[in-house]
Amino acid sequence: MKSRHVFLVGLPLVLIFWSFSNNHLKLDTSSLYTSATAVNKEFYDATAFVGPVLNSTYFDVRYYSLAITPPDSFLTFREALAFKESQGKFWKVNSLGYMGKYQFGMSTLETLGVTDSLRFLRSPRLQERVFIKNLRYNHEILEPYILKYAGKKVGGVYITESGILAAAHLSGPGGVKRFFKTKGRKSNRDAYGSSVKTYMKRFAGYDMSEVIEP
């Protein structure tokens, strides 16, 4: 009888505790999205560093920002391209000497104002700035092609602004121009077999408006 009494008294306490836990430990995704959006806006300063530096050596609230970022956003584009280039590793140098998260060659870096390769590898923020600078440089050169071909099919590929810019990152603006001038018949490849056409397909449909100046 005593054990039954203890059970009857204890049961409501268990239910109260469960109810409290269930209601108070839920993740408020709406507030998380709002705060993450605020973080993104803070970092999306087009004149400086764009986006949070994501590094596998630490974990903080900025990872939530990436996790809930819309799949067609610039941040998603940036990290997808970085993963393809280097698995997102800032310190990576490949067998041909291309460096960093986005695998820049030294000649391109010098064009963009970087002369110290060691400083470049040691600075994630510098790498992100250089990536944006190169993206805008390619956009300026290729804007006539973006305006002419975006939304159309060329060589069996649906053309988008982000696809063109990703392809330009791979082969430079010249490789993209060659693709369009040959109507998609000639698609430059890098030393590892990646082609302009592949990059146009793989990185199509991202929204670049947050970083490309009007």
Rank of each mutant, 00 (worst) to 15 (best):
P71H: 14
L66G: 03
T76K: 12
L75V: 05
L75Q: 12
F43K: 01
Y44M: 02
Y64G: 12
T57D: 12
Y58Q: 06
R78S: 11
S86W: 01
P52I: 04
A48N: 02
E85H: 05
F49Y: 07
F59C: 06
S65P: 01
T57G: 14
R62Q: 08
S65W: 04
S56T: 07
G51M: 01
Y64W: 14
F77G: 14
Y63W: 14
V53Y: 03
Y63T: 09
D60S: 07
A46N: 04
K84H: 11
Y44V: 01
S56M: 09
P70D: 15
F59V: 06
D45R: 02
V50I: 03
V50Y: 00
R78G: 04
I68Q: 07
T76A: 13
Y58R: 11
Y63Q: 15
L75S: 05
A46I: 03
T47R: 02
S65D: 07
D45Q: 00
P71E: 13
Y44L: 00
F77H: 07
L81H: 12
D60E: 05
S56A: 10
A67N: 03
T69C: 15
E79P: 09
N55K: 10
T69W: 09
D60A: 02
V50S: 01
Y64L: 15
A46R: 08
D72R: 13
V61W: 05
T47Y: 02
K84W: 04
T76S: 14
T47W: 00
S73W: 04
E79D: 14
S86K: 02
S86E: 02
S86C: 03
F77K: 13
Y64S: 10
V53G: 04
R62V: 06
D45G: 00
V53R: 02
R78F: 10
D72S: 10
V50Q: 04
T69M: 13
A67G: 06
L66E: 12
R62G: 06
L75P: 01
K84D: 10
R78T: 10
Y64C: 15
T76H: 14
Y58P: 02
S56H: 07
F49E: 09
P52D: 04
F83S: 11
E79W: 09
F49T: 10
V53A: 07
T69P: 03
N55F: 05
D45A: 02
R78P: 00
L66N: 06
S65C: 07
P70I: 07
P71T: 12
P71W: 09
S65A: 08
F74R: 08
L66D: 05
D45F: 00
F74D: 08
D72P: 04
D45T: 01
D45Y: 01
Y58D: 08
Y58N: 10
S86F: 02
S65M: 10
L54K: 11
P70N: 12
S73D: 13
T57Q: 12
N55D: 13
D72V: 06
D60N: 09
T76F: 13
T69F: 10
F77L: 12
S65T: 11
V53T: 06
S73N: 10
F77D: 08
A80I: 04
G51V: 03
R78D: 05
A80S: 15
Y64I: 14
Y63P: 07
L75G: 05
Y63S: 12
F43D: 00
S65N: 09
E79G: 09
T69E: 15
V61S: 15
F83L: 12
A48C: 03
V50P: 03
V61Q: 15
L81F: 13
F74E: 12
V50A: 01
A67K: 06
A80T: 09
L75Y: 08
Y63K: 15
